[in-house]
């Protein structure tokens, strides 16, 4: 029983991720309607985490959506077929809807190199339309970094993320924003490429590598999650064909 629940006598509804170990870390799952940043450097398993998040929802009959900005959906679906946890039928049946951001930009006439305020509102409207019409309860944007590169200013990025998060939350949609960060970042705004994402998000899950005697071991750590207590320990990650698997990292075993 977590401290926050017992104090208020109120149990906040959870989006049970279904990812091995993660729901335990989060004391039941992600609070419904949260916008969570999954931040990490390349190769750390962010995309896999996002996809498994959607698959586990689809297994429960939830409508899920994946917006891909980093790689074309054709390549993404090709790569993800190797995983046993993924079933193409979920895409065919419309339980997991995969959208190419490039195609969405083209349909909305967003052909310029950078987006202005009007373009951002058009994009938010389109995403929330899709969520509302299909009844999406789990959403992944991969990656929000690639998307925000097209937005001109930090203020506009802040507006975009804040407005999008608010609207999706109102629609009861739990969102995972994949964020690409460089592993050398440290100090303030460690988990944001644009300095703002971590402040706006309800939660931050960090994925990265620790070095142990020359080898790189993947780790996951929940740094922040509003609305629930959670473990703040580092967990070793294995990306297996049945999904992401987590176990506490040995305390004495890493140099970072």
């Amino acid at each position: 029983m977590n401290h926050m629940e017992s104090a208020a006598g109120y149990v906040r509804d959870r989006c049970v991720t279904g990812i091995h170990g993660l729901d335990e870390i989060l004391r039941g799952g992600i609070p419904y309607g949260s916008t969570v940043l999954a931040a990490g450097s390349c190769g750390c398993g962010k995309t896999t985490l996002g996809l498994e998040f959607l698959v586990r929802g689809a297994e429960n009959g939830e409508a899920c959506a994946h917006f891909t900005a980093t790689e074309p959906s054709v390549k993404l679906l090709d790569n993800v077929r190797q995983y046993d946890f993924f079933d193409m039928q979920m895409v065919d049946k419309g339980l997991i809807n995969v959208f190419d951001m490039d195609v969405l930009y083209s349909w909305l006439g967003l052909t310029k190199a950078t987006f202005d305020l009007g373009d951002i509102h058009a994009l938010i409207k389109a995403i929330t339309d899709i969520v509302n019409t299909i009844g999406v309860t789990r959403l992944v944007i991969d990656s929000v970094t690639t998307l925000c590169y097209k937005i001109q200013s930090e203020q506009l990025i802040r507006d975009f993320l804040f407005t999008l998060g608010k609207k999706l939350s109102t629609l009861g949609c739990t969102t995972l924003l994949i964020s690409e960060i460089t592993s050398e970042k440290s100090g303030v705004n460690m988990w944001s490429s644009f300095g703002v994402e971590e402040a706006i998000s309800d939660g931050i899950i960090v994925l990265g590598d620790v070095e142990r005697m020359g080898h790189l071991l993947r780790f996951l750590q929940v740094v922040k999650m509003r609305g629930t207590s959670h473990s703040r320990a580092k967990y070793a990650v294995e990306l297996t064909s049945i999904g992401v698997m987590l176990t506490p990292m040995l305390k004495w075993g890493s140099s970072s």
């Binding site: 142990r212 005697m213 070793a236 698997m245 506490p248 990292m249 075993g253």
Partner: peptide, 11 residues
């Protein structure tokens, strides 16, 4: 490597 103890557990 034998140093990847957590991997062994997870696998």
């Amino acid at each position: 490597s034998p140093i990847m103890l957590e991997s062994a557990l997870l696998r």
